[in-house]
């Protein structure tokens, strides 16, 4: 070991940094610098008059933040509505995606005829470009020409009239369905990878001790998947909470109030009214919220893991 380290030290000291430089520079340019600029913008009165030279926009201190969190005024009210909608959407969509992904991964753990084909089919929603898939869903949700109303109304006679799915309150249901359809395959893929690390001997030992299928799942599979689940749930949460593509393609530029996700809301506040200052303030609030949730999540899960050991 010592010999190996010694050999590595022969290489020029700056080399690793040189190897990382391109990646670092690009991450700085595209992510970190804009983030700092964004925080600065949130303190400026940055309206359409200052786009060409944003540094000349006057400072407003916390003005944009006051505007965003004044929940008695229209701007604050709609932001609060959007926040609650996004929370409800995220809990439902992440919960269902995780549940479906876990179920499918466990059920496909053992080989059976056609498993490879079925796995490929399950991964299709993840592989399809989001705009192509979601535009197909928006066709299916059309009131007069779509498949959903055809099945519910014409074939099963469940509804007295053809409901609208892409406007009004039903749009929330539509959004959750499409989002689960799109994200459960990722949960499935990740958990399938995680399941491959569970040694078969564990199951054999459990079966010898008389454990049935459900006990094997509860005692072996789920605990072994815990580390994978910790990361998976966090990633699903962040993706779903920040999802812009699904509502944007499903509803176009103006999302119905019942499904006004936060990313769409900020996008509209910024690019429709060209009030970049207010949009940036909302983005910063969103970032603070995500940081808070993520750190609480990491803190509690790592503490619990410590308690388990």
């Amino acid at each position: 070991m010592r010999q190996r380290l010694g050999r590595l030290r022969l290489t020029p000291k700056g080399l690793p940094y040189l190897l990382l430089l391109p990646a670092l520079l690009l991450e700085l340019l595209i992510h970190l610098v804009p983030m700092v600029v964004g925080i600065a913008m949130s303190f400026k009165q940055l309206t359409q008059f200052f786009i060409r030279d944003w540094s000349s926009a006057p400072w407003t201190g916390l003005g944009n933040y006051h505007l965003a969190v004044d929940f008695s005024a229209p701007v604050g009210q709609s932001l609060l509505n959007s926040f609650w909608v996004t929370c409800a959407f995220t809990i439902l969509a992440v919960g269902l995606s995780w549940l479906v992904g876990t179920t499918a991964a466990i059920m496909m753990q053992d080989a059976f005829r056609g498993r490879g084909l079925l796995r490929a089919a399950f991964l299709l929603p993840y592989a399809l470009p989001v705009y192509a898939a979601v535009i197909t869903w928006s066709f299916m949700f059309q009131r007069d020409t779509g498949l959903v109303n055809h099945v519910l109304h014409d074939q099963l006679h469940l509804t007295s009239d053809r409901p609208f799915w892409l406007i009004g309150d039903n749009s929330f249901t539509a959004l959750v369905v499409v989002s689960v359809w799109r994200s459960w395959p990722f949960a499935f893929l990740t958990l399938t990878a995680g399941l491959q690390n569970i040694p078969r001997e564990l199951y054999e030992a459990a079966a010898m001790d008389g454990a049935g299928v459900w006990q094997q799942i509860r005692r072996i599979t789920l605990p072994s998947l815990r580390p994978v689940n910790l990361v998976l749930v966090l990633v699903l949460f962040l993706w779903t909470f920040n999802d812009f593509n699904t509502p944007y393609v499903l509803f176009g530029k103006s999302a119905p109030e019942a499904s006004d996700l936060i990313s769409i809301h900020i996008y509209q506040s910024s690019f429709v009214t060209w009030n970049f200052g207010a949009g940036s303030a909302m983005s910063v609030l969103l970032l603070l919220f995500l940081l808070l949730v993520t750190s609480v999540y990491l803190f509690t899960t790592s503490r619990r893991r410590g308690a388990d050991d």
Binding site: H31, P34, R52, L287
Partner: peptide, 22 residues
Amino acid sequence: VLSTQMFPGILFLLPLFLIFVN
């Protein structure tokens, strides 16, 4: 590098747009 992955696109869309324009 990994943590840049978690931030919402909308957060750096506006500044990046302005940086590119400027």
